[in-house]
Computed example of a mutant assay.
Amino acid sequence: MTRDDLIEITLEPVTHDLGGFKVHRTLPARARTMVGPFLFFDQMGPATLAPGTGIDVRPHPHINLATVTYLFDGAMDHRDSLGTDIVIEPGAVNLMTAGTGIVHSERSPAEVRPAGPPLSGIQTWLALPDGREEIDPAFEHVPAASLPVVEAHGARARVIMGNLWGARAPTTTYAGTIYADIALETGAAVPIDPAAEERAIYLAEGEATLEGMPLLPMQLYVLRPGIAATLRSAHGGRAMLAGGDAFATPRHVWWNFVSSSRDRIAEAKRAWMAREFPVVPGDEIEWIPIPGMPKTVSYP
C-alpha cells in the first residue's frame, strides 16, 4: 500500500505561542476544514508553566458547536454561563454544548499555581449536525473511571467518544463520532478499522507508523475512506483517533463561532459586542473582546 493509497491529506500544525506554552492547531486548515464532526483540533503543550502562574482563558462565547477538552497532564477549572464549576484532570472528558450560545472560562486551579502547573492535552470542537445547531446549551463531565479502556496487542486505548474495538464511551454524541486516546507500548500493533466515514490519526507523543509509514508528531493524517490499516510503534507513542460521519453541509468558522449560516455568525458577533450573552457566575469581571483578525477561521 502506497502513501497515496492510505492518506487523503496531511495537515501540518499552525503553532501559536501563548506565553509559557504553545498550541499546535491542525484544524481548521485551508486544505481541509472538517474530519467527520471535528472542525478544530488543538494540542496544548506539553509545558510546565512558571511558578505562581497559570492558564487564564477569560470568559468567551461559542455557538452551534460542542467543545471537548481532554488532558494528558495538569488540571483546568472550567466555569460556564450554566453555572458549571468543575476541575478537569487527566483522562476525563469535558463536553460543553454551545447550541444557541454559551460563555465559559478556563483557568488553572489556584492550588496548582504555586509550584508551576503542567499543561498537556487536546481540545477539539465538534460541529452540531443540521437541524440541531440551535439546541439548548449543556455541559457534561465524564470522569476517567467512566470511560472504557481497551487493552490489546500492546496498546491501551481510552474511548473518549463513540465505539472502538467493541467498547462504547458514555459521552453524548450528536452525530456519528469516534474519538480515542491510544497509548502504544514498545512493539504495539493495533488495527485502525474503516468503519467511520472519515478518520484521522494524530501522533501526540513518541513514535508510530501506519502501514509502515512513519508518522510525524503534531500532524493530522486524514485517512482515505474504507482503508483498513495497522498502527505500530517500535519504541512507544501516543496517538489520537478522531472522525465520524461526514457532514453534507459545510460549516463556517470565525473566532469562537461556528455555524452553517454566515448570518448566524454575524448575529453572534453583534450580540457579544453588545454584551447580550449570559455571564459566567463567579467570573463576571473579565471577558475576551471580539478580535480584529481572529486566529481561527474557515476557508470557504
Score class of each variant (00 low, 15 high):
Ala47Tyr: 04
Thr84Ser: 10
Ala145Ile: 11
Ala266Tyr: 06
Leu6Ala: 04
Gly83Glu: 00
Ala50Trp: 05
Ile55Phe: 06
Leu27Asp: 08
Ala242His: 08
Ala169His: 06
Trp165Leu: 15
Asp80Tyr: 13
Pro170Gly: 06
Leu147Asp: 13
Thr230Cys: 03
Ser120Leu: 00
Tyr299Ile: 06
Pro61Tyr: 00
Lys22Ile: 06
Ile265His: 05
Gly226Phe: 12
Pro37Tyr: 08
Met76Asn: 05
Ala50Gln: 13
Arg107Gln: 05
Val87Gln: 13
Pro137Thr: 06
Asp5Phe: 11
Pro117Ser: 04
Ser146Val: 12
Thr177Arg: 03
Val23Phe: 02
Glu89Phe: 11
Leu65Met: 14
Asp136Glu: 15
Ala204Glu: 07
Gly36Thr: 05
Thr124Pro: 04
Ser120Thr: 11
Ile122Leu: 14
Met76Leu: 15
Thr177Ala: 02
Trp125Gly: 06
Pro217Phe: 02
Ile9Val: 13
Glu185Met: 13
Asp17Arg: 09
Ala92Trp: 04
Ala155Gln: 01
Thr172Val: 11
Thr69Cys: 03
Ala157Gly: 10
His235Met: 14
Asn256His: 08
Gly19Pro: 00
Leu65Ile: 05
Val280His: 04
Val87His: 09
Arg156Glu: 03
Pro90Leu: 14
Thr15Arg: 15
Ala204Trp: 03
Gly83Val: 12
Asp181Thr: 05
Pro291Cys: 01
Glu211Gly: 07
Val93Ile: 10
Ala29Tyr: 02
